[in-house]
């Protein structure tokens, strides 16, 4: 499909140069079209956030210029604290997702017959069949003061007083993040476990390696690229999905996504762009570190 240009050696005429027919050249470009589209409408807009973030703010829009006002607005206000705080809770969500979700990936790979594995994993996309906003919104009646959770806990006699801290707090945002993003650590863990051949488990049994050492010394290093990718996904989305703090969070539960959308509602476009640029920088740094550490293209090697 895609051929590299032939080079001329020893003055012998390269055969491939005998004028490629038009439809073949068109086909070659068709295969590149998706990438060109992604560069034009994804890579360039994301890179341009840096440029737009230093534009001057006007009443309803912005104009070309150079000012760091937007960054001042971000770094010298409560926004920075909120942002760092949301990083902390996002990390907590990543940890919870990993602890709950990764064992499932291992279990599916290890103990379920090959043919059924994909179908079991498919179970975890069922929640996506309903819009995230509805799923998040439905958590409100579950977590509120006289909601499902408190009622259940009171009836079981575990608590006397309803826990009010369940909703409109950081806790509820973390719960929302885990509910929304848990499937992703299972998917990426599942892909990552492709790098762990099944016989490894038998070898470990044969050598008498216990489950903990097996996990730490064998599974974790092999599955690291996938686990890392899944964790970055959850971490960044925890920072960037405005919906969660918007619906579940209380005062102070403000993440980067919410800052950006609030800035857009307030017509402060340079601030929104500054936040986007900061998020992109965070993401790129994480992905770059990940790539240096584990070579992230490995995630897809089982597929190619």
């Amino acid at each position: 499909m895609v051929s590299s240009p032939t080079n001329v050696t020893n003055g012998v005429r390269p055969v491939g140069s005998m004028q490629t027919p038009l439809h073949e050249r068109l086909a070659l470009w068709a295969f590149r079209a998706p990438l060109i589209f992604m560069v034009l409408f994804f890579a360039i807009p994301m890179a341009m956030t840096v440029v737009f973030s230093v534009f001057e703010r006007t009443m309803f829009w912005m104009e070309p210029g150079f000012t760091l006002t937007a960054y001042e607005n971000f770094f010298f206000s409560a926004r920075l604290g909120n942002f760092l705080n949301s990083m902390k809770y996002s990390l907590i969500s990543v940890a919870i997702c990993f602890v709950i979700g990764f064992p499932i990936s291992v279990f599916v790979r290890k103990s379920i017959p090959q043919v059924a594995q994909h179908r079991v994993v498919l179970l975890f996309i069922l929640p996506f069949m309903v819009s995230e906003i509805i799923r998040v919104f439905a958590l409100r009646p579950v977590l509120q003061r006289n909601g499902l959770m408190n009622t259940a806990l009171t009836n079981m006699g575990i608590i006397d007083e309803p826990i009010t801290a369940l909703l409109y707090t950081h806790t509820s945002v973390v719960i929302g993040e885990v509910m929304s993003f848990l499937p992703f650590i299972i998917f990426s863990g599942f892909l990552a476990m492709e790098a762990v051949p099944k016989f490894i488990f038998e070898v470990c049994d044969d050598l008498g390696v216990g489950p903990w050492r097996r996990f730490k010394d064998v599974i974790l290093p092999l599955a690291a690229p996938g686990i890392f990718a899944g964790s970055v996904f959850i971490f960044v989305n925890g920072l960037g999905v405005a919906l969660l703090p918007n619906i579940l969070g209380g005062a102070g539960a403000v993440n980067a996504g919410l800052i950006a959308t609030q800035a857009i509602s307030a017509l402060d476009f340079p601030l929104a762009m500054a936040v986007s640029a900061i998020m992109m920088a965070t993401l790129m740094t994480l992905l770059w570190i990940g790539h240096k550490l584990f070579d992230l293209t490995k995630i897809l090697t089982p597929l190619s």
């Binding site: 032939t6 012998v12 390269p14 055969v15 491939g16």
Partner: peptide, 17 residues
């Protein structure tokens, strides 16, 4: 595969392209 250089003739006709 396209050769880097040289040619292939089948029944006397160049088919490199």
């Amino acid at each position: 595969q396209k050769p880097t250089s040289g040619d292939v003739f089948l029944h006397g006709k160049s088919v490199g392209h």
